[in-house]
Amino acid sequence: MSAVGWTPSEREQERVRVRRSIRRRSVLLASTATVVVLGLLVVGLVASPGWDRFRETFLSWPDAKESFPDIARGFWLNVKMFLVAEPLILLLGGAVAIVRSTVSPLLTPLRLLAVLYTDFFRGVPTILVVFLFAFGIPALQLQGVPTDLAVLGTAALVLSYGAYVAEVIRAGIESVHPSQVASAEALGLSRGQAMRFVVLPQGVRRVVPPLMNDFVSLQKDTALVGAVGVFESLFAAQDYGNFNFNYTPYLVTAAFFVALTIPLARFTDWMGRRMMEKERGSR
């Protein structure tokens, strides 16, 4: 019964050869198609009428070098805002989602508040929320409330993204079949325990890909805080460009963001795949 005492038949060996050649052919086809498409894109770009002018203003190596340190410093601020905002968003979004999924009559006002919160913050453009926070909160002259624009901007991002994430997590919670709650309750678990040990783990796992999607998006939207004059990378690039009449720093900034989001996107893909394999088995 073991795999040891078996030699593939003549037919099987030929089949393996054929499979290999089919695979070789598809790899070749994929490579050719990729090269052709990329080549056409490059030709199309270089052959455009304004290409020389474009190269001067967007692809100037000295300007890229000169603006690099400022942009890098600014980008570090983007990363910090992102790292601070992300866990807060998860907490806020999770809390709002759980509140919206409760059924207790006592919690009705809280549920109402949660609905208002998500409706409002999903409806208002994120950049507007940033403006409101950065200019509105200092104007209130409240005691003990920070006036640092980066902090206020990050708070705006947290509230705005918290609303999206809350809805994503709620979708996950609602996707868990009611029979799961029933069987948890049949074991004597309370509603809260059922949520914590049975529903939430399954629900959140299902929405990890869209959650990661939101976080990739958040990474980029930290640049919105630059609109109120915080020296993050995009604002640094704008500052340089306005002073030197050269837009190369924009591309430098773009490169920074891409360098950060691509690994996160691959990580997301990998995690999604791994989870699917774990839950579905090999078939």
């Binding site: 078996w6 593939p8 038949s9 037919r11 099987e12 089949r15 054929v18 499979r19 089919i22």
Partner: peptide, 17 residues
């Protein structure tokens, strides 16, 4: 399949092609 032959309506369907 990892070895052997399956023929259906006179045609070998275990052929990778």
């Amino acid at each position: 399949i990892d070895d052997g032959v399956i023929r259906f309506e006179g045609e070998e369907i275990s052929d990778p092609r």
